[in-house]
Design a binder for these strands. Structure first.
Ligand SMILES: [Zn+2]
Ligand SMILES: [Zn+2]
Ligand SMILES: [Zn+2]
Ligand SMILES: [Zn+2]
Lengths: 130, 130
DNA sequence: TACATAGTGTTATATTATAACAATTTAAAT
DNA sequence: ATTTAAATTGTTATAATATAACACTATGTA
């Protein structure tokens, strides 16, 4: 489950598309964009997305049901993710803050429990939209 | 948009159901449970859910497409939410940690931007499942 | 009263995601 | 090289989640 592993044909096609996109992409939008490459069914898209998320090449933006490529070399397997989301233009940026990830990775709840994974989504207005 | 406002008939029915549930409830499960009370269509459920989220009586667990009642008196309008989610039994608990909310509310990204809202989901194993 | 806002009921439809089954490719393991 | 297991693909059908559009009713308030 290493980020550097070779991708399969469908995984590569779908990753390339998401990676080139300047905005989060939704599954059926991805499907429309790769039909000319021979990927015809939703399941082919979802399977590639599942794998790409698993190995940390992309992340799912849960509040938007959309996917972005990871550009944060330190986040290997989508176990500790944080994003900022503009509520007007829907621009999404992955946050890579060492102090934030340290704080959350070490966070213990009141029972002293630590967690193996987290996902954080911040909402506000981006620079352009303010 | 105050948590203390009176709820409409459908909102009250649906809130009561979610509030009594020990686990997050999904929209169509809610629908099945309130059909005997005269709520027959998905849209009736989704409208009530939207309103209840807006006023902070319930929260949506984004990674699960499910809803839980808020039991955190300090969280008025679902603007700063944190949950722990057990990956085995799917138990969800709302985290109310003053230091966590303080840290996240004051978090600024590298451009110095602060955000108006956040949602954080932690994943791990609950006490029972360890 | 008149008006505005919020809520309801209903049908239809859009969007997101998975089940089930068969075949093929890839990468070890012997 | 041959066997075996794991991963990937292709395909059809269907499940699960969510919204559009329209007509009507209730509620509060000026
Ligand atoms: Zn990343
Ligand atoms: Zn923006
Ligand atoms: Zn709450
Ligand atoms: Zn558990």
């Amino acid at each position: 489950m290493d980020k550097m592993q070779n991708l399969s044909k469908n995984q590569q096609i779908i990753f390339d598309l998401i990676d080139k996109s300047s905005e989060p992409m939704k599954a059926y939008s991805i499907l429309h964009n790769v039909q000319k490459k021979g990927i015809k069914a939703p399941l082919q898209v979802y399977r590639a997305l599942d794998k790409l998320v698993e190995i940390g090449k992309i992340h799912k933006i849960e509040s938007r049901n959309a996917f972005i490529a990871c550009h944060n070399s330190s986040c290997q397997v989508s176990k500790a993710t944080a994003f900022s989301i503009c509520e007007i233009c829907e621009k999404v940026t992955e946050i890579s803050s060492a102090s934030l990830s340290k704080y959350l990775t070490n966070f213990k709840d009141k029972d002293g429990m630590k967690y193996s994974k987290y996902n954080l989504e911040f909402f506000g207005l981006c620079k352009k939209c303010r």
